[in-house]
Amino acid sequence: MYHKTLSYRVFNLFNYIVLAVISIACLLPLYHLLMVSFSDTSAANAGRVTLWPIGFNWDAYAQTFGNDNFVTSLWVSVKRTVIGTALALFVNSIAAYALSKDNHVFRGRNIYLWYFVITMLFSAGLVPGYILILKLGLLNNLFALILPGLVAVYNIILLLNFFRSVPKELEEAAFIDGAGYFRTFISIFLPVSMPAIATIALFTMVGHWNSYFDGLIYMKGAQNLPLASFMQTLIVQGNTTGFDPAVIANMSQRTLRASQIFISALPILLVYPFLQRFFVKGIVIGAVKE
């Protein structure tokens, strides 16, 4: 009824415009960057590129992929993301399953839960964490980037809440058919919890891909640096080792940087739309309980 009134129609028109403008504002900076990366050096340096490339070319991308350090870092990032996500999904989801049992079935469940939650409330901080990695001899080791953050308590709680919403009858039917806890977890709980699992997978993958600080402090030497850390040294610290100095002199720093930034963000831009439908569902079910 109300949406037929004139005042609501006027509001509605403005609402659509405002929402569209705000949403475009979320994408515009990234879009502008892409246009700069395709543009001619002099146009980019003079700041003439806004919404369309001037003197379209791929030179910046050719340069970026011609840098061995960049390609090595890309590979380090792929490794840490794949291994780190796989391990994290296994460890966190299996722990969440056990913890989703009631305390009278799984005695000690509450103690375990507090054992995990305490680490969410209090952490030792940067320096003790660094000294630990040093003492474990994990400097320059890929596992220094994977193991410290592998158990994500927040994700365990998200999954645990999700598992609790799975009907008890499903589990009982599996038990009657002779399945054990492990089998029930693999064959019943994992398949029915795909939205939640996909959400956690997305968060973990993005976390690994974007994580730069651990690489910066634990990885000495370019051959071990993940892409995000390498990017940080390039973009923020302005380090250009590995690029041909002669080329650098002729190239626009701006187009080169733009191409690097865009490539480092690309995997996320590609994965994100596919997982979006999962994560909204996953977060909502895990976070908002009846």
Binding site: N210, Y212, I235, S264
Partner: peptide, 10 residues
């Protein structure tokens, strides 16, 4: 979903 490294570059 974009990192602060990417965004600070932008």
């Amino acid at each position: 979903f974009l990192s602060w490294v990417t965004l600070s570059g932008i």
